[in-house]
Amino acid sequence: MSVPTDYDLSLRDVLKFFPPSTTAVKDVSLDVGPGTFTVLLGLSGSGKSTLLRLLNGLHTPTEGEVRVLGTDVAQAGRSELRRLRRDIGMVFQQFHLVGSMSTLENVCTGALGSLRGPRVGLFSYPKSVRQRALEQLERVGLADHRFQRADTLSGGQQQRVAVARALVQRPRILLADEPVASLDPESSNQVMSLIARIAREDSLTVVCSLHQVELALQWGDRVFGLRHGELVLDDSSCNITHERAMSIYGNSAVLPAAAGAGAAATSGAAL
C-alpha cells in the first residue's frame, strides 16, 4: 500500500460529493512537500474543511486519489488508517476540548492512538505519556494550568491546549481547520505564531485553512485558493499580491491554477 514519494500530501483529481446535491470539492489536484506551511484560502463553504477531512480519512473521496505520507487514504484499512492518523495532528476552529477534563488530560488524549484500550482519568495514562503531555503544555506556555478544567480557559488558551494535544501525537503533518476564526486578533496572532514556530522547530508539514487573506499571506509558504470546491489559486505566497488573493473572493474570472502545480516545497516565505 505504501509507496515512497517526494510529497507528504498529494491529491489527484479529487472530487467529493455529498448526497443529495452538494459537490464540496471538485477536480482538485495538488502536492505538498515536507516541511511546507500551506494555507487553504477561501470563504466558508468553499470546501476547505472537506479537503482537510479528506486528508485524514474522515471523508473518503468520491473520485480521485488522496495520498498522505505515501498511503492511499481511501484504500487504507481500519488499522492502517489509524496508524496514519497518528502521524497527522489536527486543530479545530472550536478547539474541541473535553470541557470537564483537566487541561493535561485533554493533552494526553492526543496519545490515545498509540495506546491500547480506553482511558479514564490521568492515572490511566502511562507516566511517559503524561510527561510528554506536560512538555507540550510547557511549549505552548500553559503548564501552570495543567490541572484546571479545560472549559475555564480563555479561547486562545484552549486553542493552545488543542495544539499541544495535536503535538503529543508526535505528528509529521499538522492540519488546522480555521484555527483562529473564533479568536480575537491578539489571540489569533499568538496561536498562528505558535503554530508557525512549532512547525519550524519540529519540521512539520502544515495545512491550515483560513479565510483572511492577510493571515494567509503572512503565515503561509504556499497558498491554495478555493472557490466553490475548485482550486483557483496555487502559488508561493511571495508571488501573490493582496489583490490577486482577494480576487478569489470576487466575481472576477476564475484564475487558472498556477502552471507549476507540481513545484512543491517552496521558497522560505515571509515569516
Binding site: 489509524r82 497518528r86 492526543g110 490515545l112 484500550g117 482511558r119 479514564v120 494535544r165 495535536a166 501525537q169
Partner: peptide
C-alpha cells in the same frame, strides 16, 4: 467535536467513548 478530535488522532471507537463521550 472532542470525539472527532480524538478520532482524528487515531483513537479507537471505545477510546473515543471513554475519552470524550463519557466525560461529556
Amino acid at each position: 467535536g472532542p470525539r472527532q478530535a480524538q478520532e482524528t488522532a487515531g483513537a479507537k471507537r471505545i477510546q473515543q467513548i471513554f475519552g470524550s463521550v463519557m466525560p461529556g
